[in-house]
């Protein structure tokens, strides 16, 4: 399972000759149109409030307000989509489905992350409270999580077999956690993170 995709994001990946000796660089480039993502940073990393109190809003209020925002936003963008809301544990969830929504996911889920972030900011301001929220389009996040686990496991096995370090592409904190957890499940492999955001990346090492 070797991926060698060009990156149009300057600084997002190192070319092999820039890697430390004995280290391979791997890129997992997931096409937004066909794979999923779980880049749930905004919902996991505590975010400062733009305006508001420390009181958390009820997930139900967050979910309905977020649905209202996302529906209006997509309509303004001229996108036809079905928007639903749900509450999962203490977190509000808004799901978007429809035809041809790849544009709303974007490269590595970047547009989806922007949608989630803007929704969180808008809802937080409207409710004047801390907001925990997940926005997904076409089940992208769930599928991305699955593909990351599969990828991390295969890289861990490869690092173990070769006894080398393998450097993965930059990922956000949430994705790195998924990778670390998956690598921890492979005996004889370990992982750590290196570099600064937004180019922080996971290194997988055979032990």
């Amino acid at each position: 399972m070797t991926h060698d995709f060009p990156s149009d994001d300057p600084g997002a990946s190192l070319s092999p000759q820039e890697a430390p000796p004995g280290r391979h660089i791997e890129e997992l480039d997931v096409d937004a149109a066909e794979l999923g993502d779980e880049a749930d940073t905004a919902a996991v990393v505590p975010q400062p409030l733009d305006e508001g109190r420390d009181e958390p809003a009820t997930p139900q209020a967050v979910a309905t307000t977020a649905e209202e925002f996302v529906s209006g936003l997509l309509e303004a963008m001229g996108l036809e989509a079905e928007v639903t809301h749900d509450v999962q544990g203490d977190r509000a969830f808004v799901g978007v489905s429809g035809e041809d929504l790849g544009v709303l996911i974007g490269r590595r889920g970047q547009t989806l992350d922007a949608l989630q972030e803007l929704t969180r900011i808008a809802v937080q301001r409207r409710l004047r409270a801390r907001v925990r929220l997940l926005v997904d389009v076409e089940g992208y996040r769930a599928r991305r999580r699955e593909s990351l686990i599969e990828y991390a496991t295969s890289m861990a096995r490869r690092a173990k077999t070769r006894g080398t370090e393998i450097e993965l592409e930059p990922m956000n904190a949430y994705e790195r956690k998924i990778v670390h957890d998956a690598v921890a499940g492979v005996e004889g492999a370990a992982s750590f993170s290196e570099g600064d955001e937004p180019n922080r990346k996971v290194i997988v090492r055979g032990e």
């Binding site: 733009d50 963008m77 544009v103 709303l104 992350d113 922007a114 803007l118 900011i121």
Partner: peptide, 24 residues
């Protein structure tokens, strides 16, 4: 400041969505 947001978060998200809308 509100449209820009903390550390430019709001305007960055807005730009990203505007690019997506423009792409279409």
């Amino acid at each position: 400041g509100k449209i820009i947001g903390r550390q430019g978060r709001t305007i960055r998200a807005l730009r990203s969505l505007a690019r997506a809308a423009g792409q279409r």
